[in-house]
Design a binder for these strands. Structure first.
Length: 652
RNA sequence: GCUGCUGUGGCUCAGGGGUAGAGCACGUCCUUGGUAAGGACGAGGUCAUGGGUUCAAAUCCCAUCAGCAGCUCCA
């Protein structure tokens, strides 16, 4: 019998229960001792995920990581990455491959390989089949810790493993270095991992792409296999289905199909808006202007081309020149504005300002141009010319918090009206390199957090991620496919007022420097419209729809006059409508309107003509039956007025 | 910007060393039909651009431009 007096023990707290185990016992034993049952994938010791077999060396709080959790999924995906690497090693010969890294990412994992064979999608089934074999073999994963870099390098002795060696070299000396082995495959890895490959459930290789070693384009280009894994085939199928859905909703595709905008070789990165796209664009702008007028904003418009000297003063010439376009006027250099603020400050300085005007809110839908690298252009999401829904607010430091609350209120209200109720909020605080006094930063950051807390907004803090000229809050909206889009931002700016020597006259008659808030809600109208297209899948709510009502005569001959009368009535009421007087059959006309995702179709035939009525059909395929033409108009107008996100008309 | 893939009528795409095809859309005509495609006929492309190989290039090679994916960048 072991001497319990001398044997070291660890005290482990598992869901409130304390169990005592010999030091070095595997984590999983603690669950067993504590009587916790379940499908364990890993353990979490004081918040850190570790292997189930990891020896416990000191007292800790331990919880199981089980199927169905994010932690569990990450562990399974991590092990899946090793399995994929092992499969590649088996299929192409371990001596022919060099392994780089294989981390878990948001939607799965990847592994980077240096291999002569060029992966093509046709290789995926083969690799997947080998992975399935490895899972079926249920190989156990063994962790081996080595003492320092020298020993780690010794493990790799004689192997082609220049990436692994480099990784080891760059590790801090204090770091524990570990390897994981499953069957014949060993990989440098921090872990944690599943206990055995058999616990991997459903996986799929998604794509292959080039990727630079350590993201550096001057270094080796590797082949990256993207893959994903889930706890069940069902979840995997759902994921794949979602990807297809996202593809269907691609705004570039819908933009073409719905005839909203186009892009052309003659102007890469510069969108061309078609009539229907313009309707949506203008509707957003009209709405935006109304909201800003109601929130006591003034609206200004500043030039697109401004003298180079202004950009020296603003600091853009030093920091942003690469992204700017230049031109020449009368032998003077001018720049096309990449941002609106410098022009805005000229408006501010056009008059002597008083504290009585504060907070002075100047909004500008400013068209900016930025030279984005060709490879980053992406439909409306990344363009070279776009309209920022910008505003600059000038106020005193004391007003900051209240102003920020007001901006936030406006942001959330506007997001809600477009159907975005889930918003991620991020606070970025002072970076190492920054201007402005400690007191200024304290006030600004205090105002931002104060505003967030005042409205009980949940937010994450990104320490040191603020701009050098001030802290900021960023807003990301979640769309119907659960993707997040960075749109809104509120930035406090200490730099601009200094650089442009902006002043106001305070109550005591002294000249003081105002604080400037720089804010955008939608970010860029173009990009936001792209997000809206994907969010709604092209089926815009009625208030935004380019065409709201399509009149469909049953017989073009016989109901031409009546259908035109109905159309006239719709147009007079201010609705966007048209009539289909083509000679196609009614079914084809309906199909056409349906594919254009027009909210309402009005079928008019002999029956309707007799009673001055219309047979209403909703694009979500509901035949609502007949109703009086006047009643229809009133109800749709109401739907538009309230900016309803759903179609509201129902069967009477 | 880097790497890979792609570029054929307005759109989606097939074809492929011997000077081009389908469906949809479009036009004309016939059809006047009650809730997702009626029919016939027709027009439309120097196969992204420039160069090279070849008796012959849309097809093969190179470069350029553009698009897509990824990397990086940006926020």
């Amino acid at each position: 019998m072991p001497d319990s007096q001398t044997e070291a023990k660890v005290r482990v707290t598992v869901s409130g229960k304390v169990v005592e185990l010999p030091a070095g016992s595997p984590a999983v034993l603690a669950f067993k001792e504590a009587g916790v049952k379940g499908d364990f994938l890993a353990a979490k010791a004081d918040g850190k995920v570790i292997d189930l077999k990891r020896p416990l060396k000191k007292d800790c709080t331990l919880e199981p990581v089980v199927t169905g959790t994010k932690d569990g999924l990450d562990v399974m995906r991590h092990t899946s990455a090793h399995v994929m690497a092992q499969a590649v090693a088996r299929l192409y010969g371990a001596q022919n491959v060099e392994f780089a890294i294989g981390p878990v990412i948001d939607d799965g994992f990847y592994y980077d390989f240096d291999i002569d064979h060029k992966f093509v999608p046709e290789d995926f089934p083969k690799i997947e089949a080998e992975m399935k074999k490895i899972v079926a073999e249920n190989l156990t994963l063994e962790r081996r810790e080595v003492a320092g870099k020298a020993e780690a390098l010794a493990v790799l002795e004689g192997q082609r493993a220049r990436f692994k060696r480099e990784l080891i070299q760059d590790l801090p000396d204090t770091e524990t270095i570990s390897f994981y082995t499953q069957g014949e495959f060993t990989d440098l890895c921090r872990g944690p991992h599943l206990t055995a490959t058999g616990k991997i459930k459903a996986f799929k290789i998604m794509s292959v792409a080039g990727a630079y070693w350590r993201g550096d384009e001057k270094r080796d280009m590797l082949q990256r296999l993207y893959a994903t894994a889930f706890f069940s085939e069902k979840e995997l199928e759902e994921f794949v289905h979602n990807l297809e859905e996202a593809k269907k909703r691609d705004h570039k595709k819908l933009g073409r199909e719905l005839d909203l905008f186009s892009f052309h070789q003659e102007a890469p990165g510069f969108p061309f808006w078609h009539p229907k796209g313009m309707v949506i664009y203008d509707t957003i702008v009209d709405y935006w202007k109304k909201k800003h007028t109601a929130a006591s904003y003034h609206q200004i418009k500043t030039p697109i081309i401004l003298n180079e000297s202004l950009w020296h003063q603003s600091g853009h010439w030093d920091n942003y020149r690469e992204n700017m376009y230049f031109t020449e006027i009368d032998e003077q250099v001018y720049a096309v504005k990449p941002m609106n603020c410098p022009g805005g400050t000229l408006v501010y300085r056009s008059d002597l300002r008083s504290y009585r005007e504060f907070p002075l809110r100047m909004a500008e839908l400013g068209l900016v141009h930025r030279h984005e690298k060709s490879g980053v252009l992406n439909g409306l999401f990344r363009v070279r010319a776009f309209t920022q829904d910008d505003a600059h607010i000038y106020c005193t430091p004391e007003m900051l918090k209240e102003e920020i609350v007001a901006v936030m209120d406006l942001i959330f209200e506007i997001y809600r009206d477009f159907g975005f109720s889930d918003v991620n909020v991020n606070l970025s605080t002072r970076p190492e390199k920054s201007i402005g006094s400690d007191a200024m930063w304290a006030n600004a950051e205090g105002s931002l957090t104060g505003a967030l807390e005042h409205r009980a907004v949940k937010y994450a803090v990104d320490p040191g991620a603020g701009a050098f000229y001030g802290p900021k809050i960023d807003f990301q909206i979640r769309d119907s496919l659960k993707r997040y889009w960075q749109c809104g931002t509120i930035q406090v700016d200490f730099s601009m007022p200094e650089r442009f020597e902006m002043e106001y006259v305070a109550a005591d008659g002294a000249r003081k420097r105002p604080v400037m808030i720089h804010r955008a809600l939608l970010g860029s109208i173009e990009r936001f419209l792209g997000v809206l297209i994907e969010h709604y899948g092209g089926a815009f709510p009625t208030w935004l729809a380019p065409e709201q009502v399509r009149v469909v005569p049953v017989s073009e001959d016989k109901q031409a006059a009546y259908s035109k009368r109905v159309l006239e009535r719709l147009l007079q009421a201010g609705l966007r409508a048209s009539v289909d007087l083509s000679s196609s059959r009614m079914g084809a006309k309906i199909r056409d309107a349906q594919m254009q995702k027009i909210p309402y179709m009005l079928v008019v035939g002999a029956r309707e003509e007799e009673t001055e009525s219309v047979a209403v059909r909703r694009r979500d395929e509901m035949d609502l039956g007949a109703m009086g033409a006047g009643a229809f108009v009133e109800r749709v107008l109401d739907e538009v007025r309230t900016r309803s996100l759903t179609l509201t008309l129902t069967k009477q």
